[in-house]
Amino acid sequence: MTAIAARLTPPWWLRSNAGLIGVLVLIGAVSIVGATVSDRFLTLGNLLNVYEQTTDLALVSIGQTLTILSGGIDLSVGSLISLTSCLTSGLINGNPDRVLPVVAGVLALGTLVGMINAALVVALRVHPLIVTLGMGAILQGVTLLYALGPVGRVPRSFNVLAYGRIAGIPIGATVALTLCILIALLLRYLPLGRQIYALGDDANSARLVGLRRTRILMFVYGASGFCCAATGLYLAARFGVGQPYTGVNYTLASITPVVLGGTLLSGGRGGVIGTMFGAFLIALLNNLLNFMDVSKHYQLVAQAVIIILAVSIYVERRRME
């Protein structure tokens, strides 16, 4: 009987990467449609543009992947992005000398806010959904107390983060990709990485074998906060100014690439590489719809349909296991 079961189960590379294969198939499908729509779609120049447009979503979603893998979720990302982007441009205020200290400070602040989320989850024993929802409201309030409209400005040199290219390769997106690879290695090879999966898969067993939940969550939510701060910096660089509502859509948008990349919302399964491809898929899809002259409004519909298709198909896989 086990022999039959063994023969029926898909090979290991399919099993552990099924989500990844799904997103790659979707990317392939969008590419084929794109190639038939326009000759320029599959050119290197256009693909590099899409890669560049992936930056913000990729950055937030990498952190979000970690919180979801650990069995939680971070709903404070949008407000934290707004806050950090406002603080970046507000504190730099056009002065190139302040860039380095402010960037360091903003990244530290993001990490700290994430760690406070983790501390509240542990200390109050409240579901992360509620804690980060509350934290999101608090941070949005703080952001609006700091600035009711666009605030400050960043020096021209700071724009490099968003528009700069070295030998044609966009800098911002490459920073995101590097971060993604580092975290993927951490998840795969460091004990802490394995512990994140263990905690997300079965919190009770993780406790019984003596995993230190506090430490794991501190890392996971701290990393998510760090990623939000990085996104805030990127957006401040892109728009040249911080806006108090700039991050509002990212809270929910950050979850889409994670799910598209094959990470289960219930935790314990998935990875950041899939998320990176998920973010790329969304950027590619929007790019395709632009080529097809589809109005911005229908792009939302297309995105929702893709989400619904993806999550419905993945369920089949979960049942099979």
Partner: peptide, 27 residues
């Protein structure tokens, strides 16, 4: 029927409604 987490399912519906609304009103 598809065992999607409620969070995700209603999120998708939210975006879907938003898209149809924007498409209908042209913003």
């Amino acid at each position: 029927k598809r065992q999607v987490s409620p969070f995700l399912a209603t999120l998708a519906t939210m975006i879907l409604l938003q898209g149809f609304r924007f498409a209908y009103t042209q913003g």
